[in-house]
């Protein structure tokens, strides 16, 4: 395998991993606060169509990312209101949010399917990325670096800040957090809104980073992969980074193995296609074997907060 091919594969893997990573990071924070939002796929689609329409109308990619985040946040407020203010079942509400997002984005996207836009260009000047090695480091658009920065930022927030500690306390023991005076519902609202904004940006990756068009259901299930990755990563940001890039790698290698023949097809493409599922099973087994505190699942995950009981 030539160095050029390896570099080309890395560049494709980074692109494929980025939307999954951004969406999963948002969901990680949501789940750490004790809320399970299965509406990631729907919020991503709302973000994707918002980003597409903004780029199509204004040509401004950064404005598109910003408004996609706002649209994802707005969609997540529906979920927040139903599950936090009205204590509706989180699983059912999340599923409904995905169905809503799919339908809403299809409706809003009518008439935009035959319209091309342009991708968001690289963040750094092209002189930095002339050599192939530098291209691996400096050849991407801002979305890729945003995802990586957010991994560190979220790790730092959860581990090192007082606000992060409160968020984790709310997720681990909502009644205790409530009894010492923290607003459980308020914290969870903020977390859900953050998750919505991240899902919106993840959706924006589709028309801005991967394929500059709008197609209905263009996220094609990646929101669900993001939800699964949070469990896969046992709710830790750096494991999430590794998991997202692992999923991106196997999804990409399946295609390169099919396309390439030669050395790449030594591993059959079916095995590449099966690897994410095998890896998930392996991680779940590992989590079950180490049945101590390290499983890390927030204790209040998915439970509505009802302080009067």
């Amino acid at each position: 395998m030539s160095p050029e091919l390896i570099i080309a594969i890395i560049v494709t893997v980074v692109g494929a991993s980025t939307p999954i990573l951004i969406a999963a990071l948002g969901e990680l924070v949501v789940e750490r606060s004790g809320v399970l939002n299965l509406g990631v796929e729907g919020m991503m689609l709302v973000g994707a169509i918002t980003a597409f329409v903004v780029v199509f109308l204004t040509g401004n990619h950064y404005l598109a990312i910003l408004l996609a985040a706002a649209a994802g946040l707005g969609t997540s407020l529906i979920f927040g209101f139903l599950t936090l203010s009205l204590s509706a079942n989180q699983t059912a509400t999340g599923l409904a949010l995905t169905i809503f997002g799919t339908g809403f984005s299809a409706l809003a996207g009518q008439g935009y399917s035959a319209r091309p836009v342009t991708l968001l260009g690289p963040l750094f000047p092209s002189e930095l990325a002339t050599h192939p090695i530098w291209r691996v480091l400096f050849g991407y658009s801002a979305l890729v670096y945003f995802a990586l920065i957010m991994v560190v930022a979220i790790w730092w927030f959860l581990k090192k800040t007082r606000a992060g500690l409160i968020l984790r306390a709310v997720g681990e023991n909502d009644l205790s957090a409530h009894s010492i005076g923290y607003s459980v519902i308020g914290v969870r609202y903020l977390a859900v809104m953050f998750g919505g904004a991240m899902a919106g940006i993840a959706g924006a990756c589709f028309p801005l980073l991967l394929t500059p068009q709008w197609a209905e259901r263009m996220t094609a299930g990646r929101g669900w992969i993001a939800v699964a990755l949070v469990v896969f990563a046992s709710w830790r940001p750096f494991r999430l980074l590794a998991g997202a890039y692992l999923f991106g790698l196997v999804m990409t290698m399946e295609l390169y193995a099919k396309a390439g023949g030669g050395p790449l097809s030594v591993v059959p493409s079916e095995l590449w296609a099966a690897l994410p599922y095998l890896a998930t099973v392996a991680v779940l087994v590992l989590i079950s074997i180490r049945r101590d505190a390290s499983t890390n699942a927030p204790a209040c995950l998915g439970k509505p907060f009802l302080p009067s009981n």
Binding site: I9, A16, L210, Y256, A259
Partner: peptide, 19 residues
Amino acid sequence: STWNDPAKEADADRAMIDQ
């Protein structure tokens, strides 16, 4: 294995062009 996953179509195309 799908009729509609534009991002996967694009990546499949990249994989072939790179080779």
